[in-house]
Amino acid sequence: MDKLEQLSNIKAGDVNISKITDFFETIKNVKDIDTLGSEDHIVKSDNLREDVVINCDPEEKALILDNFPAKQGTYLVVPKVIQ
């Protein structure tokens, strides 16, 4: 569980995942899957838009900044990355 907590960035605490992991046995036991004729329902991305930066409008920019959790004056405060 320690590794999963680390991967998830979440303390598991009382969270019990055993009910979900019961599904793992079910899927392992599925046999004889006929995939002939299946078609991807996800649309192929063969019509990509241009990879260009599009500036958002000032109102949108203000809302994005307003959502930032910590500020000091005009600075945006983030946790220390290097100790």
Binding site: K3, L4, E5, L7, S8, I10, A12, G13, D14, V15, N16, I17, K19, I20, T21
Partner: peptide, 15 residues
């Protein structure tokens, strides 16, 4: 709790 359960189990599925 339910969202944590799904995220943790999801990371297990992908590990």
């Amino acid at each position: 709790e339910e969202s944590k359960r799904r995220i943790i189990a999801g990371n297990q599925v992908l590990s």
